[in-house]
Amino acid sequence: MRARLRQMHIDGRTYTWRAALHSVRVNGFSRRAVYVRAWGSGGKNSQKLEADLLSAPGPYVVDDGYPTPADVRAVILCGLESGWQPEQRGGTFVLSDREHGANFAAPGFQLTNPVRPGESADPTTHEAQQQG
């Protein structure tokens, strides 16, 4: 099944995005993970923004795990604030917890370092802070 491309308008600019769900193991527990990809007005020829999100940990959290437009807006704004150049042709700008986690805020999600299906995720900075 192909991921559906969606559009979002922020400050008069159009961004195209998609999200794909999967799960990863973090400290022995299965967590919902979401790949978010976004492009500027140049479409897939423009510089791509990549962000991997984990569902936020915590008791009694219902993990429906698909990002809302507000969550994707937070990803795009964090990317723009961190140096993503959507008008640039080609290339990829990766948001990671290690470098950009302090600037990311979306209820229900936290930015993580890139994770692929079937891999175990390293604890993110946020989880280390909660454990320590």
Rank of each mutant, 00 (worst) to 15 (best):
Y15L: 08
Y15W: 08
T16G: 03
T16Q: 09
W17L: 01
W17A: 03
R18P: 00
A19P: 03
A19C: 15
A19N: 12
A20V: 07
A20G: 10
H22K: 12
H22I: 02
S23D: 15
V24N: 10
V24D: 10
G28F: 07
F29S: 10
F29L: 09
R32M: 11
A33Y: 14
A33H: 14
V34S: 09
V36K: 14
V36I: 07
W39R: 06
G42A: 11
G42H: 08
G43Q: 05
G43A: 06
K44M: 09
S46I: 05
S46M: 04
K48C: 10
E50L: 08
A51M: 01
L54K: 11
S55Y: 07
S55T: 10
G58D: 02
P59C: 03
Y60R: 06
V61M: 15
V61W: 01
D63G: 03
Y66S: 11
Y66F: 11
P67N: 13
P67V: 11
T68F: 02
P69N: 09
V72C: 14
R73C: 05
A74R: 03
A74Y: 00
V75S: 15
V75E: 08
I76E: 00
G79C: 02
G79E: 00
E81T: 01
G83A: 06
G83N: 01
W84P: 04
Q85N: 09
Q85Y: 14
P86Q: 06
E87V: 10
Q88W: 11
Q88P: 07
T92W: 02
T92V: 15
F93V: 05
F93H: 11
V94D: 02
